[in-house]
């Protein structure tokens, strides 16, 4: 077997090791690779800037814990911006683990900012039903959530008494590893005109981009890269910025192996043609 053939039939484990080592490298030795801030992230931040103290925002944690590595930085950054502006937060989730994500990443920022549970923020937790659930909470939140995530009677929470349907919410922000952005675009934006902001995982960005272009989604962050940009925009580089070098390295590895694959393929073809 020629060297080119061996290269073309490279064992997948070689690629996996290369990926692992090169992604780990920036964590050991921070590379400080440069990054340009996109207009999407600027728009996202500006939309949140427009909120006034006391406004209520629906934060929908539509991701599992597995997606926190991608969007965790954005979650913390949003919590920081909202709490700095005195905006109240009601959290729901279409994913069972979403309420845990809120508790572990969003809630600590709010509590350290002096937010009071039930008055300034509420975590209602997960409810089954996907789009049906999202349509229902727009009409009557307490009918879907009779109790919050901690088991408190929803009717006893002052924030929920004041914000029981779509009319009380200035906007919706969804952290989305599924299709919740589409659900909110149809059930909240199209029906009631409530602006929807989306923070999708990287792979879902292209999927929701048409909704953003059509105006159904007011602003959008481009996955972990968008989260890193957003962190920089609010002046609080954190989790997302730590991972951004690794993200660049990971994508470079993919490109490098595509180039290698093509070198092997074209080289082998030329060799056979000569023969």
């Amino acid at each position: 077997m020629s060297a080119l053939e061996r290269l073309a039939k490279m064992d997948r484990r070689v690629m996996y090791w290369a990926m692992l080592l090169l992604i780990a490298l920036p964590y050991a030795v921070p590379l400080g690779l440069p990054m340009q801030i996109s207009t999407y992230s600027t728009e996202f931040k500006t939309t949140i800037d427009a909120l006034a103290p006391g406004d209520v925002v629906l934060v929908s944690m539509d991701i599992g814990l597995g997606s926190v590595s991608e969007l965790g930085g954005g979650i913390i950054a949003l919590a920081k911006q909202l709490s700095a502006q005195g905006v109240k937060v009601v959290a729901v989730s279409t994913v069972a683990e979403g309420s845990l994500v809120f508790d572990q990443y969003f809630r600590p920022v709010l509590t350290s900012a002096g937010y009071g549970y039930g008055v300034d923020y509420v975590n209602l937790g997960y409810a089954a039903g996907d789009e049906t659930m999202i349509a229902s909470i727009a009409e009557n939140m307490r009918e879907v959530y009779s109790r919050d995530y901690a088991g408190n009677d929803a009717a006893s929470l002052p924030l929920l008494q004041a914000a029981d349907d779509y009319s009380a919410y200035r906007l919706v922000v969804t952290f989305d590893a599924g299709t919740a952005t589409g659900f909110y675009a149809r059930q909240w934006q199209a029906k009631y005109g409530t602006p929807v902001l989306s923070v999708p995982t990287a792979v879902n960005f292209s999927y929701f981009y048409p909704l953003y272009q059509a105006g159904s989604v007011e602003a959008i962050l481009n996955g972990p890269r968008g989260c890193a940009e957003y962190e920089q925009l609010i002046g609080a580089p954190g989790l997302a910025n730590q991972g951004i070098d690794a993200l660049s390295m990971g994508q470079l590895v993919v490109i490098a192996f595509i180039v290698l694959g093509n070198v092997a393929f074209v080289g082998e073809r030329l060799r056979r043609r000569k023969q």
């Binding site: 490279m10 997948r12 690629m15 990926m19 692992l20 192996f257 694959g261």
Partner: peptide, 8 residues
């Protein structure tokens, strides 16, 4: 990891 092997 799988993206690398599939893309390659």
């Amino acid at each position: 990891f799988f993206i690398v092997s599939a893309a390659f």
